[in-house]
């Protein structure tokens, strides 16, 4: 929509991706300061940022934002098992959300796409955790996680939707999608 050349456009994308990454990292750190009733239960605000990146920039950028955010958090915690746990949750979540948004965005509204991402997050994370501690029965812990994940996913999806509307226009228009 702008007359700007491709180089400027690329620069703009890189800057926006960096901004989203910084934002995701910041909310990730901030929300880890809030005590949660059960381990593994969290609001997942970083996933909301990834969903915004997915809608406003594209699937590739959403993956970049998520991967960079996970590795930045790893620098903060420094534990390789925590890294595996974060990756095991965040990567399936972004993959599912990208797929659903890419294929079914006419049929699914953002809160439900976010809920599906939360489910993928819970499933991936519990799989990684039960593999790391070598105990399959941990997998039953997915039930309380799914309950919390559905609520949290819905809330963050709603948040992401309103952010995308503010940034991208009335119909979730892309601010910079190729």
């Amino acid at each position: 929509m702008h007359e700007s050349g491709k180089t400027l456009n690329n620069t703009r994308r890189i800057v926006l991706t960096g901004l989203f990454t910084a934002c995701a990292f910041a909310v990730n750190i901030a929300e880890s300061a809030f005590p949660m009733p059960l381990p593994g239960v969290k609001l997942g605000l970083a996933n909301a940022v990834a969903l915004c990146a997915l809608v406003l920039l594209g699937a590739k950028e959403a993956f970049i934002v998520t991967l960079l955010r996970v590795f930045l958090s790893w620098l903060a915690s420094g534990n390789v098992f925590s890294l595996a746990c974060s990756l095991g949750g965040a990567v399936p979540a972004v993959a599912v959300m990208s797929l659903l948004y890419g294929k079914l965005s006419d049929d699914l509204s953002m809160p439900w796409i976010s809920v599906a991402g939360a489910w993928a997050f819970n499933a991936g994370q519990i799989a990684v955790v039960s593999y790391i501690v070598k105990d399959l029965r941990i997998a039953f812990y997915i039930l309380p996680l799914l309950v919390a994940g559905t609520a949290a996913g819905w809330a963050t999806g709603l948040l992401a939707q309103s952010v995308c509307k503010k940034l991208g226009g009335k119909i979730n228009e892309d601010i910079d999608r190729q």
Binding site: M36, P39, S82, V129, V133, K134, D135, I138, F140, Y141
Partner: peptide, 21 residues
């Protein structure tokens, strides 16, 4: 630690960074 006291057979508490169950 946040998992609290576990009592029922089949339940567990995980310390992921230490790979402790």
């Amino acid at each position: 630690i946040r998992m609290g006291r576990i009592t029922r057979p089949g339940t567990s508490a995980v310390c992921l960074p230490h790979r402790l169950l």
